[in-house]
């Protein structure tokens, strides 16, 4: 079977991708609280949050981050990723129950490394809600395999 993954050599700086939308539900937040053990009132106490600046429970910031990572795999053909190297991330606004988020991503930079079989790809990512507001944004660095000569 042909290898459908995209290698360092195939990826071009400036390429842009947009994912399908995903509606973040109460179930997502409850499951994430259970999985992570993060039961902060921000995410779990509807009554407390009525009095907060948000007016209701909000999704864990890291849930939004993890969902965009999943959306990335649906936005473009998979990269031949060897490793996730790191990220720089900002939380700009809340994701509330029922919000629909999507990922806009752009290849910002490619960098060769000391190893000839791999290269570093930096992807700029913006998570937007149904009103087009940016709720999260940042950059991720991925180590991607090169095609064998």
């Amino acid at each position: 079977m042909a290898d459908a993954r995209r290698y360092f050599d195939d990826i071009q700086v400036g390429e842009e991708y947009e994912s399908p939308g995903r509606t973040v539900t109460e179930a997502d937040i409850v499951l994430f609280a259970g999985l992570s053990g993060d039961y902060n009132v921000l995410h779990t106490d509807a009554e407390f949050m009525k009095q907060s600046i948000f007016g209701e429970r909000i999704a864990h910031g890291l849930l939004g981050l993890a969902i965009q990572a999943g959306l990335f795999t649906r936005a473009t053909q998979g990269f031949a990723t060897l490793a996730f190297v790191g990220l720089r991330w900002k939380f700009k606004g809340p994701i509330k129950i029922g919000d629909t988020i999507r990922l806009r991503a752009k290849v910002a930079a490619k960098q060769e490394t000391s190893k000839p079989d791999r290269g570093l790809v930096t992807v700029e990512r913006t998570v937007v809600n149904q009103r087009g507001e940016v709720v999260q944004e940042g950059e991720t660095d991925l180590m991607v395999e090169r095609r064998r000569a």
């Binding site: 997502d28 499951l31 994430f32 999985l35 890291l62 849930l63 981050l65 993890a66 969902i67 990572a69 999943g70 959306l71 795999t73 649906r74 990723t81 060897l82 490793a83 996730f84």
Partner: peptide, 17 residues
């Protein structure tokens, strides 16, 4: 299942987990 994010290789833990 929750996020749609997976590890690059079986047996590894997804990096954000």
């Amino acid at each position: 299942g929750l996020t749609g994010d997976a590890a690059h290789e079986h047996g590894l833990v997804p990096d954000l987990l």
